[in-house]
């Protein structure tokens, strides 16, 4: 039993946020279906089943437009914080350490340790890929989510156009529609505000015990120390 408890404790963040994601996605599906059917009734159409709604572009675009902006946020933050610093922020590294840092700092090449991942010790293209793997994967999820938003938003937009007895648009045409850019930018703006405010608020504010914060007693000017 202690072994099971330890395993659960050791994976608390991944487990709890994964379960919260599933619960909230169910909540989104239920409330989204209710709103969708309100609109169906308002235009004199038949309400749809949950199964129909879950396979609709209306549900899909609402999910993936939020996904793409979250992964854009993480992708930009991971890349931005290589080169950009914020003096005094726990979200930043020290102001004189900008850039990709030395092989010694990063335990790469000749500085790899015996317990380093094997692609680090390879020293060829595998080391180059592994050195960028977090950014590559988060960037790929962003691009794929944004593409998914474009095709699901396009399908949902055309369904609405047909309902209004207006002409459907091509996918490229949809990329020029206000609907696509409104969905995109309303999510992007909030992510940029959240990232910027996190970087700046963490200079002067503390959260005891959180690795996202400096120690409570750290000076406002201290950069990159975590509590």
């Amino acid at each position: 039993v202690t072994g099971v408890r330890r395993t659960l404790r050791d994976n608390g963040l991944g487990l709890v946020f994964g379960l919260l994601f599933l619960a909230m996605l169910v909540g989104q599906a239920v409330s989204g279906l209710a709103q969708y059917n309100d609109q169906q009734i308002a235009i004199g159409a038949e309400p749809v089943s949950l199964g129909h709604y879950l396979t609709s572009s209306s549900f899909a675009v609402d999910v993936v437009e939020n996904w793409q902006s979250e992964y854009l946020q993480f992708f930009l933050y991971i890349f931005g914080t290589i080169w950009l610093v914020q003096r005094g922020s726990s979200e930043s590294k020290e102001v004189d350490r900008t850039g990709v840092e030395s092989d010694a700092d990063q335990l790469v090449g000749a500085h790899a340790r015996s317990d380093s991942p094997c692609w680090v010790r390879a020293g060829d293209w595998r080391t180059a890929v592994f050195s960028r793997s977090l950014g590559i994967v988060l960037g790929a999820i962003f691009v794929l989510s944004w593409f998914a938003q474009s095709v699901t938003g396009w399908a949902a937009y055309n369904a609405e156009q047909l309902g209004n007895r207006e002409d459907p648009v091509t996918w490229l045409g949809y990329l020029g529609e206000p609907d696509f850019w409104n969905r995109t930018l309303q999510n992007w703006q909030s992510e940029m505000l959240a990232v910027g405010s996190m970087a700046v608020l963490a200079v002067y504010l503390r959260q005891r015990g959180s690795p996202e914060s400096k120690p409570v007693g750290a000076a406002h000017g201290d950069t990159s120390e975590t509590g």
Partner: peptide, 30 residues
């Protein structure tokens, strides 16, 4: 196999399958 590795595979798998599914929903014009 550790739970950490299972979580990694679950996250990557769910995201990948969901993105393929949603993209197909859009392309099929549902």
């Amino acid at each position: 196999v550790s739970l950490t590795r299972i979580l990694f595979i679950a996250y990557v798998g769910v995201i990948t399958i969901a993105l393929v599914y949603f993209t197909l929903v859009g392309l099929l014009g549902r």
